[in-house]
């Protein structure tokens, strides 16, 4: 399925703003990132097909975009469910290596980047509320929080860096309760979409009626 570029642009905008905020709150991160410039990380998700690129600029900012023509420094690719597994794993670094995710290009850069970013506390809510308004924005933020923060808090002590992991042996992380939570909120969302759809149908009837009357 082809996604609407405007929607993807919205997702990128939100991600970029959330990451920028987190970087601003974590002194030291920007200079570390600036040293990585001009690294580009491509995240290629299949099924649904979404490509997202994280581009590090000379000021240590991360631009998030959906379209690039340059060769990325490193590319991680896999299905959406493989990415979901990584996001919800107790040990994302391990899941990244062991899961069905393919890493091509400069793996060392990926490790450094993961090191720098793993301490960031990313708050998705504020930029999402900015973009989508309080109601939808808040719900979406909750959904993402269910995915990331819960596992992060629960496993802070156990969290390992990707670089450490490569030195040690890998192990596949078990599916987590957070995933169930997440799927629960997805069901919730589906219900809401159904409701919106019937509202749209009613609206269409009204429009038809109106245009019939004015014709």
């Amino acid at each position: 399925m082809q996604h609407d570029p405007a929607v993807i642009a919205g997702v990128c905008l939100v991600a970029e703003a959330a990451i920028a905020r987190a970087i601003a709150l974590s002194p030291g991160t920007a200079p570390q990132l600036a040293q990585l410039h001009p690294v580009e990380l491509a995240i290629a998700c299949t099924n649904p097909t979404i490509d997202v690129f994280l581009v590090i600029n000379g000021d240590g900012e991360i631009n998030v975009s959906s379209y690039r023509e340059t060769e990325p420094t490193v590319c991680i690719s896999g299905s959406s469910s493989a990415f979901l597994k990584v996001a919800s794993a107790s040990d994302p670094a391990a899941a990244l290596i062991n899961g069905n995710i393919k890493i091509t290009g400069d793996t060392a850069v990926l490790m450094t980047l993961q090191n720098v970013l793993s301490d960031l506390n990313i708050d998705w809510e504020a930029p999402m509320v900015d973009l989508l308004g309080p109601i939808v924005g808040h719900q979406l933020a909750n959904l993402i929080r269910g995915l990331t923060t819960a596992s992060k808090v629960a496993h802070q002590s156990a969290r390992r860096q990707l670089s450490e992991f490569i030195l040690e042996e890998g192990r596949l992380s078990p599916p987590r309760a957070e995933l169930d939570d997440f799927l629960g909120s997805v069901d919730d969302m589906v219900l809401r979409v159904d409701r919106a759809e019937s509202r749209l149908k009613r609206l269409k009837n009204r429009v038809d009626l109106l245009s019939g009357a004015s014709a």
Binding site: A6, A9, C12, L13, Y67, R68
Partner: peptide, 8 residues
């Protein structure tokens, strides 16, 4: 968003 995609 339209402008953002155009810039990309």
């Amino acid at each position: 968003l339209w402008k953002r995609f155009t810039i990309e």
